[in-house]
Amino acid sequence: MRIADRYELEAMVGRGGMGEVWRATDEVLMRPVAIKLLTDHQAGAGARLRREAQAGAMIHNPHVVDVHDFGAYDDSPYLVMEFVAGTTVAGELRRGRPLPISAVAHIVAQTAEGLLAAHHEGVVHRDIKPANLLLGRDGTVKIADFGIARFLDDAADSDSAEHIVGTSFYVAPERARAAPAGPAADIYSLGCVLYQLLTGAPPFLADTPTGVLRCHVSGVPVVPSGVEAGVGRQLLRMLAKDPADRPDAQEVITWCHQVSWPATTLACEPADFGEVTQAIA
């Protein structure tokens, strides 16, 4: 199948709530690309894909997936992106193999570098989670899926109490309260990812998405046993309830490079906590 008389689709490599992602070849520039095609044509899906294209095009950083093109095929929008050969952080967690602490620091630092670039452009990702962190074969981490990103200069863009879009395990408390999310919300979500990398599960679990959201608002995260004290303190800072108490992306990067990470392998086993939901009503 060929799109726009240029992109030859080869194999589906992912499927999400809005559509499918295909590996393809750009036959004009002769390079591999990834193409996201909408399969869900409900109201707002096309706008989310356009937002993802706009946000990605604004950010130029080795730790954010490059956006190459955006268009329509058979009246359905598509997004052409950099193809990253490898897996995701979620895929790495599913392998069930403990990660060296140095690898955890590497993942967090690179994600923070991508977030720093996004925040500099006034873009808040709002859906940082293991599945949206691509992990290349060379170990490079790239942030993907800016479909629910918020532009800081858009004062009207905030969540409603009735419909919070995102994945409940990684939603910042302010978003759980339906308040506008600034850059600190991404740091909280990255803190949840760090917690999962250290323990195998996110900081808060519950039987329902609503229960998880309540935990983000009022629950107290427990520092995992065996985690070095300095790592635990930084983790709790990233998971602070008040956005003003969290470090910014640059502080996280500096900390990752300066902290004396133990040269050990995590002993925990990834927990089977499932995926609760992508759209939280």
Rank of each mutant, 00 (worst) to 15 (best):
Asp5Trp: 02
Arg15Asp: 13
Met18Asn: 10
Thr25Ala: 09
Met30Leu: 15
Met30Phe: 15
Lys36Pro: 06
Ala47Lys: 10
Arg48Lys: 08
Arg51Trp: 03
Gln54Cys: 12
Ala55Val: 08
Gly56Pro: 05
Asn61Ala: 14
Pro62Lys: 04
His63Arg: 08
Val65Phe: 03
Asp66Lys: 03
His68Leu: 08
Asp69Tyr: 01
Gly71Met: 10
Ala72Val: 15
Tyr73Asp: 14
Asp74Ala: 13
Asp75Ser: 15
Ser76Arg: 10
Val80Cys: 06
Thr88Arg: 04
Val89Asp: 04
Ala90Phe: 13
Gly91Ala: 08
Glu92Arg: 03
Pro98Arg: 05
Pro100His: 08
Pro100Thr: 07
Ser102Tyr: 04
Ile107Tyr: 02
Ala109Asp: 12
Ala109Ile: 15
Ala117Gln: 14
Glu121Thr: 11
Gly122Arg: 04
Val124Gly: 09
His125Thr: 11
Asp127Leu: 01
Leu135Val: 06
Gly136Phe: 00
Arg137Thr: 15
Thr140Phe: 03
Ile143Leu: 13
Ile143Asp: 12
Ala144Lys: 06
Phe146Ala: 08
Gly147Pro: 06
Ile148Gly: 06
Ile148Cys: 04
Arg150Asp: 08
Arg150Asn: 11
Leu152Ile: 13
Asp153Trp: 03
Asp154Lys: 02
Ala156Thr: 15
Ser158Phe: 13
Ser160Leu: 11
Ala161Val: 07
Ala161Lys: 03
Glu162Asp: 12
His163Leu: 14
Ala176Glu: 03
Arg177Thr: 02
Ala178Glu: 07
Ala179Lys: 05
Ala179Gln: 10
Pro180Glu: 03
Asp186Leu: 04
Leu190Asp: 07
Phe204Pro: 00
Cys215Phe: 00
Gly219Glu: 00
Val222Asp: 08
Pro224Thr: 04
Ser225Gly: 15
Ser225Asn: 13
Ala229Ile: 09
Val231Gln: 09
Leu236Met: 08
Met238Lys: 02
Lys241Ser: 01
Lys241Met: 00
Asp242Ile: 01
Arg246Met: 00
Arg246Ile: 01
Pro247Ser: 01
Trp255Ala: 02
Val259His: 06
Thr265Val: 15
Thr265Asp: 10
Thr265Ile: 11
Thr265Pro: 06
Phe273Arg: 11
Thr277Asp: 09
Ala279Leu: 14
Ala279Cys: 14
Ala281Ile: 12
